[in-house]
Design a protein around this nucleic acid. Structure first.
Lengths: 132, 132
DNA sequence: CCGATACGATTACGGTTGTAAACTGAACGC
DNA sequence: GCGTTCAGTTTACAACCGTAATCGTATCGG
């Protein structure tokens, strides 16, 4: 296989949407304690701390987070990179809905006016790079 | 009320992945009977006809399919457009993972080498159109 | 007419998800 | 020392999902 260092997520384990919110907090800053994560996601979702703890545990079980003891509590750190997760999800969507090709997705976004002028400029310069 | 023509999917109902496979069959050709849909998806998934029927029923309940009696059986027709579904899912992904901006998604796909030369050419020409 | 079929509807059942309360053990204050 | 507090662990529980078997009934072949 690739040999390039295994990256978390044992088996076909997937990260659910609620779990993803927790990962976001930890990708933004790590390590963090459960309470800190609760603080961090508090703005977006209205969860009790118990809920956050459940999600953290599940993520540890899934191999998405590592724990490091800090006195009587744990500090959590992501074991998978945000870019890996994001890349995987993107690929899944492209595969499922667009036959694996990115162009139709792009066309869709364009058609739905989901592209700002800024996006267009940015993509254009990316294209330039790719062509070299 | 809105008046702007409701388009299927009552409430926040979402189409699951298995259900989506059924929708695909019906987007490809409609209307179709349960048996026909079973035939159609048979290639991809190894489902029993019972499973297909369950999925069809759930989709009807969710307001994603309409039924039309044909003798003693039903013919199913999509109530939501594929492009609406696809657009919605794409938007959800872009919102969730890329802060609503398409450029980072594009950058990701590019970086992950998910773009073929063909894709690039296609996107380039789309960009040209957009710019005028 | 009557049994074999073909359909949709009902029921099933284990797994995951969202959401959280209850439990348990360690540490800290007094 | 001893109760309070705080942290993680266990248990809960309904909804949704994947996957299907079973049930009830209308129809078709003979």
């Amino acid at each position: 296989m690739g040999g390039t260092k295994a990256k978390g997520l044992l088996g076909g384990e997937r990260i659910s949407e609620a779990e993803y919110a927790v990962m976001e907090a930890l990708w933004a800053r790590a390590p963090q304690s459960a309470a800190e994560v609760g603080e961090a996601v508090g703005g977006q979702r209205d969860w009790s701390l118990a809920t956050v703890k459940t999600l953290l545990s599940r993520l540890v079980t899934k191999g998405a987070l590592a724990t490091e003891a800090d006195g009587r509590r744990f500090l959590y750190t992501p074991l998978i990179e945000r870019s890996d997760y994001v890349g995987g999800e993107s690929r899944r969507l492209v595969d499922r809905l667009f036959g694996g090709r990115a162009a139709p997705l792009f066309a869709h976004l364009a058609e739905a006016e989901a592209l700002s002028a800024e996006d267009i400029a940015e993509i254009e310069s990316l294209l330039q790079e790719l062509k070299q």
